[in-house]
């Protein structure tokens, strides 16, 4: 038995691979649910109703999918250029704290329509700035950006902790370490009344479309793909590798920072150190499930949010720890890698 590279990738397999990967991940997670002594199919049924059963649940799932789309895009654009940005978690937090700082400052006397885009930009810039550090270390000292971007996540969260314990601490929070809330008029308008769903979802979907167009229709898109597929070849063909990577870094870090900004302005209005339940890391999974396709990111983020929101309800009803959602989603990353492999290779006897 040996593996043989396929001449071309069959479209059916490419389309089916994420679905097969998710089914396989659900099957393996099913063993863990069964091991806990719960009926597996009922548990999955409850995850679905927990995520979409009521109007409130559905809006909650979409609210949760919003930051995942943005961090998923952040990972997808970077990975396509073989820039391993694993620091979306830290970039998310820096974006969030930037918005909390500016949104509660003198700037907040500006009218909403001016201030909101300004805060979006500020959050994105904070995310960019953080990712530029690992890129600089890679270009200047040949340091693998995986480890440095990962390590900076811890630094960023500690920095946020320092800020909300110090200069940005909300004096009205009964001693809890949380930042001052952003001004009322910077909060994003709701998409649906009496829910948490806000226009950040629209921003995320528009961002996915823009990234798609950027990658499919522009020189930058071609260059970033070339940088990922074959860096030496790209340089030989005249692609400015360093400059392309800087642009990719800004786009990727910017999207992750924007995710943090939108989460503060759309949902929480202030920053704590548990603002993100791992949105940055989950973004990596979202990107891989989407096969790095920006439009696929929308669907993959919805799947991931479904698991997380649905597992909350299922957990309450059946006594299965909510961590089953994290397990399933992480498993789907591994199964997706294998699925992608079999779109490229086949087994020959």
């Amino acid at each position: 038995m040996r593996l043989e590279r396929r001449e071309h990738r069959p479209l059916v397999l490419v389309v089916l691979s994420p679905i097969l990967a998710v089914v396989a991940a659900l099957a393996i997670a099913g063993i863990l649910i069964a091991a806990a002594g719960a009926p597996v199919l009922e548990a999955y049924g409850r995850i679905l109703t927990g995520a979409f059963g009521t109007r409130l649940a559905a809006t909650e799932t979409l609210t949760r999918a919003t930051p995942l789309m943005l961090t998923g895009l952040a990972a997808a654009v970077a990975f396509r250029a073989r820039l391993w940005n694993i620091g979306a978690e830290g970039q998310f937090y820096l974006g969030a704290i930037m918005v909390a700082a500016l949104g509660s400052s003198v700037l907040s006397s500006l009218p909403g329509p001016v201030l909101i885009p300004l805060l979006f930009a500020a959050g994105a810039i904070a995310g960019m700035a953080l990712m530029l550090v690992p890129l600089w270390l890679r270009l200047r000292f040949s340091v693998d950006e995986v480890v440095t971007s990962l390590l900076l996540n811890f630094v960023a969260v500690l920095f946020v902790s320092m800020m909300i314990d110090g200069p940005l601490k909300d004096p009205l929070a009964f001693g809890w370490p949380q930042s001052m809330p952003v001004a009322e008029h910077t909060l994003l308008p709701k998409l649906i009344e009496r829910s948490r769903l806000h226009i950040g979802l629209v921003v995320a979907i528009v961002a996915a479309l823009l990234v798609y167009l950027l990658q499919a229709r522009t020189v930058f898109g071609l260059q970033s793909r070339a940088a990922g597929l074959n860096p030496e070849g790209a340089v030989f063909a005249g692609v400015p590798l360093g400059r392309t990577l800087v642009k990719v870094t800004c786009l990727s870090g910017g999207l992750a920072g924007l995710a943090g900004a939108i989460e503060v302005m759309g949902v929480k209005s202030y920053v704590t150190t548990d603002l993100s339940p791992g949105y940055g890391y989950a973004g990596i999974i979202v990107a891989m499930l989407a096969n790095l396709n920006p439009l696929g990111v929308i669907a993959a983020a919805l799947f991931t949010a479904t698991m997380f929101v649905g597992a909350d309800g299922m957990s309450r009803a059946m006594g299965i720890p909510t961590y089953i959602a994290d397990v399933t989603v992480a498993l789907s990353l591994l199964t997706m890698l294998v699925a992608i492999f079999f779109t490229q290779y086949r087994i020959r006897r």
């Binding site: 990975f79 694993i86 890391y281 990596i284 999974i285 891989m288 994290d326 989603v329 992480a330 990353l333 591994l334 890698l337």
Partner: peptide, 8 residues
């Protein structure tokens, strides 16, 4: 990516 997947 595999390693990160194993970690998660």
């Amino acid at each position: 990516v595999t390693g990160l997947g194993i970690t998660l």
